[in-house]
């Protein structure tokens, strides 16, 4: 009886504490959303939302239709780049994970440990040679769409998706693959007909992470797009475009509307795949 009561008290106390904390987390978002509907930052500055008579869509229509800042184009660019790179990455990585789990070859574990160790190395170390490599391909600093290639390909050497899919494949019994082989299937047939259908969920989780990672990446596209930033800003991806947006006249809240617009696509992804994302993150901590 006493323990039941203490559990109930625990539930009440934790709910109250978390509600207070959640407010701290939510208020910046609500405030930004509200301010994006104000004509400028000075109107109704002490309210979360503007008064009805001051409410305006002007910031959004400015961003969407004026053409000074092609936010919709940026969203489209980000979407194209992130989608292509995600699809390519998944193809490369799920084949690799299959080989790592179901095919025996020499130095397999050594190679995988080497790949894992690469996570410890900070990205900036490879940045300068990578920049030069992209430069020699003619991708870096190009003032046309070819610079997209520099945003799509370098991610294909990434580790996280491989790690995630491999750890899922490890749970598939090897006897399954062996019995398929006895039945006369080759590796491609086993991969496409048996392993992929089983591993769908893991591949989906890896897809979300690959997509969000590419969509949100900032430093690399910023450095790759220096030529584009100057000559054809409509080719920028969203985060780099947003960074340019923030530097206009004081009190102008159009950039906040940009921030809200930029958050909508990821929010949609998050709402529909929240369970998978959180599951993927918690798996990265167990192992």
């Amino acid at each position: 009886m006493a323990t039941k009561r203490s559990i109930l008290i625990g539930r009440i106390v934790s709910t109250v504490c978390l509600t207070l904390l959640a407010l701290v987390w939510v208020i910046p978002i609500i405030w930004a959303l509200g301010a994006s509907f104000k004509p400028d930052l000075y109107t109704d500055a002490d309210r979360l939302f503007p008064l009805p008579e001051n409410f305006t869509w002007a910031n959004y229509s400015y961003l969407l239709f004026n053409g000074d800042y092609p936010v919709l184009r940026w969203i489209l660019n980000s979407f194209i780049v992130a989608s292509i790179s995600t699809v390519l990455y998944l193809i490369v990585v799920s084949f690799a994970a299959y080989a790592l789990v179901f095919v025996d070859f020499r130095f397999k574990n050594l190679i995988f440990n080497l790949v894992l160790a690469s996570m410890m190395v900070p990205g900036i170390v490879t940045f300068i040679p990578m920049y030069n490599l992209m430069d020699s391909f003619g991708w870096a600093g190009a003032a046309d769409w070819t610079y997209f290639l520099s945003l799509i390909f370098p991610g294909l050497g990434g580790v996280f998706g491989l790690f995630l899919i491999r750890s899922f494949f490890l749970n598939i019994p090897k006897e399954l693959v062996e019995s398929c082989k006895v039945d006369g299937c080759n590796n491609f047939q086993i991969f496409f007909r048996v392993i992929l259908p089983i591993g769908k969920s893991a591949i989906f989780v890896a897809a979300i992470f690959a997509f969000l990672g590419n969509w949100n990446d900032f430093m690399w596209p910023q450095q790759m797009s220096i030529g584009v930033q100057m000559f054809s800003p409509e080719l920028l991806t969203l985060p780099v475009g947003l960074a340019k947006l923030s530097g206009s006249k004081t009190g102008d809240v159009a950039p906040l509307a940009g921030a809200v617009l930029s958050a909508i696509p990821v929010m949609l992804v998050y709402i529909f795949s929240q369970k998978y994302i959180i599951d993927g993150v918690s798996r990265s901590g167990i192992k």
């Binding site: 985060p239 923030s246 998050y270």
Partner: peptide
């Protein structure tokens, strides 16, 4: 899940 650019833009205003 938000991009660093989105977050920083919001907090610059906050």
């Amino acid at each position: 899940v938000l991009s660093v650019a989105t977050v920083c833009l919001i907090f610059k205003y906050v």
